[in-house]
Every structure is written in structure tokens, then in C-alpha cells.
């Protein structure tokens, strides 16, 4: 109802209600008031579960170990001087960037394959390929842990069967890093697949037909039509996955627990170790906040690009 019409309805009534009451009623019926009231539950949830904890984490990160004194950015200073933390930064970046790139590639490949399966068979394959993403990662990682186990590794069994020596999956730093990435890609690729599949389906067939007539080969169609048309979905998915992967905790925790010798620690697992296991909550908070400014800046630019393309194209 438009504000004017409700006012008109009120005005048309006999002047039974006192003037102040009708002003209150008008206020209550204003669109902005109603909209605010309707979004209030969400605002409360976001405020309570996101804004407050985030603010509190920032506050914690500025305290000393016993949380008795404000020490500014000293926690960050100490962290940056520590060699372990510098290696955690390097590992986290290596892990997140490699895993996200691989997830994007595998997801795109899967989506493309699925897209070309006739609609009838597509459902089954789509369902099966989504399974890794649906299983709680702590559980599936446990399964992978068994498959990587030095004594019982089924993967090594297969590798031996084709004549290669066993691989020390979780015992040697580089293999351990690769194992963590493999599990993360296995877990996260279906998400990319489903997003890309939706994006692929939204590209009109006629664009491919026009491109085919214009002289494009399959690869050229992919490069000049498919990828540019999917660019928004790709950027949003990669951004989202980058944030989630930087914050990944469960896979490292279950698979390697940061070992060997802290060489697979990432921000989240290290924050847990420093903050909870070693009891230095403020420094743990500082670890977990470390990537926030960089990710925020990346997010800003990615989303700005998405908006711009949306305005130009859609």
C-alpha cells in the first residue's frame, strides 16, 4: 500500500482517534518502517553471529596474553618475526591458491562434460559428482587419511601394483602438502562444477551457433564465448572459494594435524594451535585475522568488476 493511500484511509475516518495516535499509526505504516521491522530478525542474526564476533576478534587481537592490557599491533609484530608463522603464511597461500586453481579447473572440466551429456543421463552423474561436497569433510578426510596411511594405504597398494614404489603421503613435507591439496580439491571441486554448470546452461545456444557460423572452432568458442559469458560466475566462485579455502581447518586438522614439523599448518589450524592448544587467545585471534585485509581488498575489486559487467551485459 502506498503511504499516501493509507494516509487517505486514515484521514477519511471520523476523527475518533486523537491526533498523536494517528501520527504513530502513520509512522508504523510507513514502508521504510515495515521494511526495517521485517529485516530485523536477519539484522539481529548477522549482528550477533558475524559483526559482534568479528569485532570481538579484532579487540582480542590487540590484548596481551592474559587479556589484561591493550598492546596494539604487538601480536602481529611478534607473529611476523616468527619463522614458523612466516612459513604458515607461505603454506596457506600456496595451499589456497593451488587448491582453488585446481578446483576451478577440475570443476570446469566436470561441468563441461556434464553439460554435454544428454539431459536424461545428466541427473545421475550430477548427483554422484556432488557426493564429495555433501559428506561432512571431517568424515571424508578420515577416509582419505586411511587411504594415505603409511601401512595400509590403498593408494600405495595400487601404485605398487603398477610397479611404482610407495609414496610417503603424509610423512614427507611436500607429499603432505600435496595430500592436503588433493583432499581439498576432491571436496571442493563439485561446488565449482555445480556453479559452472548453471553458468554454462545460461549461455544461449544461439551464441554458439552464431560463433560457429562466424568461423569459431570449439576451442575458439570456449575462449571467446563461453569463458567471457561465465566470467562473473567464475570470479564470484573463485572469490568465495578463496575465502573459504584460506579459512579451511578440518582437512589439515584431521589429515596431518599441521605436521610434519608444522610444515602443513595453515592459518586456521595454526590459530587453533596457538590460541586454544597453547592458550594464547589474543595471538590466535591475530593469526586468524591476518588475511582479512588482503581478502577484503580482493573481494572489493572482484565484486566491483562483477557489478560493472552486469551493468554492461545483462
Amino acid at each position: 500500500m502506498a503511504p499516501d493511500s493509507s494516509a487517505a484511509v486514515l484521514a477519511a475516518r471520523p476523527a475518533a482517534a486523537p491526533a498523536r495516535g494517528s501520527a504513530m499509526k502513520r509512522f508504523a505504516r510507513r514502508r521504510s518502517t515495515i521494511a526495517f521491522l521485517m529485516t530485523l530478525p536477519l539484522i539481529t542474526v548477522i549482528g550477533g553471529l558475524v559483526a559482534w564476533p568479528a569485532g570481538y576478534a579484532i579487540y582480542l587481537a590487540t590484548l596481551n596474553r592474559r587479556q589484561t592490557a591493550f598492546i596494539g599491533l604487538e601480536n602481529f609484530d611478534i607473529l611476523l618475526e616468527s619463522e614458523t608463522f612466516r612459513s604458515v603464511i607461505w603454506q596457506s597461500c600456496f595451499f589456497a591458491i593451488t587448491a582453488v586453481l585446481l578446483k576451478a579447473l577440475v570443476g570446469f572440466w566436470l561441468a563441461h562434460m556434464l553439460h554435454h551429456i544428454p539431459a536424461k543421463g545428466q541427473k545421475i552423474w550430477r548427483g554422484m559428482l556432488l557426493v564429495p561436497w555433501v559428506i561432512p569433510p571431517a568424515l571424508s578426510t578420515l577416509g582419505w587419511w586411511w587411504m594415505f596411511d603409511p601401512s595400509y594405504s590403498s593408494i600405495n597398494y595400487l601404485i605398487n601394483a603398477i610397479g611404482f614404489p610407495s609414496v610417503p603421503w603424509l610423512g614427507e613435507p611436500w607429499w603432505a602438502r600435496i595430500s592436503v591439496i588433493i583432499v581439498n580439491v576432491w571436496y571442493g571441486a563439485p561446488f565449482f562444477m555445480i556453479m559452472y554448470l548453471a553458468a554454462l546452461k545460461s549461455v544461449p545456444d544461439q551464441l554458439y551457433e552464431a560463433a560457429a557460423i562466424d568461423g569459431a572452432t570449439g576451442w575458439q568458442g570456449l575462449r571467446h564465448i563461453t569463458l567471457p559469458m561465465m566470467q562473473n560466475i567464475i570470479s564470484i566462485t573463485v572469490l568465495f572459494s578463496l575465502i573459504v579455502t584460506f579459512a579451511n581447518y578440518d582437512i589439515v586438522r584431521v589429515l596431518t594435524n599441521g605436521g610434519p614439523r608444522d610444515l602443513t599448518q595453515v592459518f586456521a589450524s595454526y590459530a587453533f594451535q596457538v590460541g586454544v592448544l597453547s592458550g594464547n587467545i589474543p595471538r590466535g585471534a591475530a593469526v586468524s585475522l591476518f588475511m582479512f585485509p588482503l581478502l577484503a581488498i580482493i573481494a572489493y575489486f572482484v565484486l566491483r568488476g562483477v557489478n560493472k559487467r552486469n551493468q554492461e551485459m545483462a
Binding site: 544461449p204 544461439q206 551464441l207 557460423i213 562466424d214 568461423g215 571467446h224 564465448i225 567471457p228 554492461e312
Partner: peptide, 21 residues
């Protein structure tokens, strides 16, 4: 012969212009 080698040009009902170009 695939469309790209037929040396034809086509105008579609909904134009099929590439929106990103």
C-alpha cells in the same frame, strides 16, 4: 562441411549478438 567452413552468414531472430563484445 561444418558451418564455419560454409562461408555463410546468418542473422538470427533474437540477433544473437555477443553481449560481452
Amino acid at each position: 562441411v561444418p558451418p564455419r567452413d560454409r562461408d555463410i552468414a546468418m542473422v538470427f531472430q533474437n540477433y544473437a549478438l555477443y553481449p560481452h563484445m
